[in-house]
Write a protein that binds this DNA or RNA. Structure first.
Lengths: 154, 154
DNA sequence: CGCTAACTGAGAATGGATCTCAACTTACGG
DNA sequence: CCGTAAGTTGAGATCCATTCTCAGTTAGCG
C-alpha cells in the first residue's frame, strides 16, 4: 500500500506534538503510526488494541492489524501512551503526555482521569517504610467508577 | 474418574478452614476443589492457572484443565483467593483469607505480601475528594520489587 | 538518486482461557 | 439406605487477542 493514502490530520488534539514525538529514537514517522496516535488521542478514553484497530479501519480499510498493535506498543515505550490490563486478558491503551502521572480508569465507561503525584506519594512512602517494598511507579493505575457512572447505578 | 483417588491432604496450611469454606453457598466440596485450594495455599506466592494446573498434574495426572480454572474462579468469588493480571495477559492467583486487605505483588519472584488497610485508606479518601472517583477496593493491588529481589539487582 | 534499515500488511501460528457435553458425584429428603 | 436433582468433572474442541513471519515497501540520509 502507498503511505500517501494516509497523512490527513483531523484538526483535534495536539497534532504537532504527536508528530514530533513519533520520530523519537531511531524511529520513522510513517503515515500509519500518525493515524494510530491520532485515533488514540482523539478517543479520550481507554481503548483496546482491537477496538482501536476497528475504528481505524473505518477510515483506513487497508491498515494491518499488526501495524496497529506494533504502533501502540511503541507509543507505550515512548511514553506517549500507557497500557492497562482490562478484564478478559485484554490490553487497553490511553494517550497521555510524557510528564509523569497516574491514572484513574473508570471500569464502566473507560474514561480516564489523571491523579496528581502528591495524592499517591504518601502512600508509596508508607508502603516502603512498613513493608520494605518498592512499588513500580509505572504500574500505579487505579480502577473504579467515575462520578457519572456511579450516579447511573443508583 | 473416581473422586476417591483424591482426598489425601498434605499436612500444611489451614486445611480445616479451607475445607469448610469450600462448601460455601450452594457449592459442593469435591476432592478436586480441595486439591486446587491446597495447592494454591501451599504455593505461598502468585501462580498462573496454567502453572498451578501443571503442578497439580504431577500428583493428580487425571485432573482436567477446566476443573482447575473453574476452581480458581470460584475461589475468587468466595474470597478465598484473589486474581491478578500478570504481564502477557495471564491471570495469576494467590490464596488469601476472607478478611479484607490488599496485596504487594513482587513482579520478580511473585511472592505476595499483605498491606494493612490503614496504609491505603488515606489515599482512597484523597482520591475520592479530589477526583470524585470511587476506587474499586477489590482492584487495589500493587506491583513492584520486594526487598530480596531489589537486593539482587544491585 | 541510491542505500539501507525500519516499517508494513496478510495471513498463519500461538497459547491462555472458555465452552460443550455426556458421565459422574454429592447432598439431601424420605 | 435409596433415589433424585443439581452441582461437577475431564477431554477435547473452540475462541480470540496477540504475536510471528516474510516478502514487498518506504523514510531518511548522504
Amino acid at each position: 500500500m502507498s503511505n500517501t493514502a494516509f497523512g490527513l490530520y483531523p484538526q483535534s488534539v495536539t497534532t504537532a506534538s504527536i508528530d514530533t514525538r513519533l520520530a523519537a529514537g531511531g524511529r520513522r514517522r510513517t503515515a500509519q503510526r500518525v493515524v494510530v496516535a491520532e485515533a488514540l488521542a482523539a478517543a479520550k478514553r481507554a481503548l483496546s488494541a482491537q477496538e482501536l484497530y476497528e475504528r481505524i479501519r473505518e477510515t483506513h480499510p487497508t491498515i494491518g492489524r499488526a501495524t496497529v498493535y506494533r504502533a501502540l506498543e511503541q507509543q507505550v515505550e515512548d511514553r506517549m501512551a500507557s497500557r492497562f490490563e482490562r478484564d478478559g486478558h485484554v490490553s487497553a491503551y490511553i494517550a497521555c503526555d510524557a510528564e509523569h502521572h497516574h491514572h484513574l480508569v473508570c471500569t464502566s465507561c473507560q474514561r480516564v482521569d489523571d491523579i496528581a503525584e502528591d495524592v499517591v506519594a504518601p502512600m508509596l512512602t508508607a508502603v516502603g517504610r512498613r513493608h520494605d517494598f518498592a512499588v513500580d511507579h509505572a504500574a500505579l493505575d487505579f480502577y473504579g467508577l467515575c462520578a457519572r457512572c456511579r450516579g447511573k447505578r443508583r
